[in-house]
Amino acid sequence: MNAQSIRRDGLDLCRKRRLSERVAAVALGGCAAISILTTAGIIAVLLTETVSFFRDVSFRQFLGDTEWTPLFAHQRFGIWALVSGTVLTSAIAIATALPLGLLAAIYLSEYASVRARRCLKPALEILAGIPTVVYGYFALAVVTPALQHVIPGLAGFNALGAGIVMGIMIMPIIASLSEDAIHAVPDSLREGALALGGGKLRTIRNVVLPSAFSGIGAAVIIGISRAVGETMIVAIAAGQQPRFTFDPRVPIETMTAYIVQVSLGDTPAGTLAYRTIFAVGTTLFVFTMALNVASHFLKKRVMKGGTL
């Protein structure tokens, strides 16, 4: 084998490698780009169908009305009937999840031993991992009948039972994210407060919680975002009657439950009723995105070190 051929082999080897390397880089980059395409796809799909929805329905009909009856002969498109249902169930869910989640986070971070924490955190993850259709069954078949013993006049489908069960579902998210925020409070602050004779309770209330405020706020907003986007629990247990009310005892309908209701029926594509689910989907998307962005900025402020 002469020097020439060795050099050529070496060159060939290099060229071959460079090719496989280049192919791999492009292919892997393509995989990563799928996430950009998915985001773009979601926005494009929602936007096109929503634009054609608003060719038939004016903004005034959409935003200036509280009746939502697109599937009836007399069509009305007041989105507030669905928004109020979403706000109501989410508010009940947060009212359940915030105290439980925050207190649980305080326990995990300030009181629990390392061993207890190692047991309790995965146990909470189980709560968050139960399929939502199962939670829906619980809300309809167990929690609502139990509540009917206590609250007279509670309908079989209602916002209260669905909201409470939804709160149990999002409680672990709030607990876990709040615990991260509370854990990040520097020990020097605790030591200072304890040295002043504050006691543990007063240290937590006056020093630890205020310092972790941004992080806890971010956790709560993520919780609200989950509640707004949650579908099966409300579709099963909150009813399918859009109405503009904040009475938790009567059947209502959320934005997500409406999309499920229309999808279950055989609504042909291209009709106005079909486009309504995209208009509702866009509203839902805007709500959750706004919440996610707000949470992101709050969390960023924590990372920069700004506490209050």
């Binding site: 707004v228 986007g229 579908t231 999309i259 499920v260 996610n292």
Partner: peptide, 12 residues
Amino acid sequence: LAGVPSIIYGLL
């Protein structure tokens, strides 16, 4: 995308 409700994926 991790924060988009799953029903929106359904619409997509």
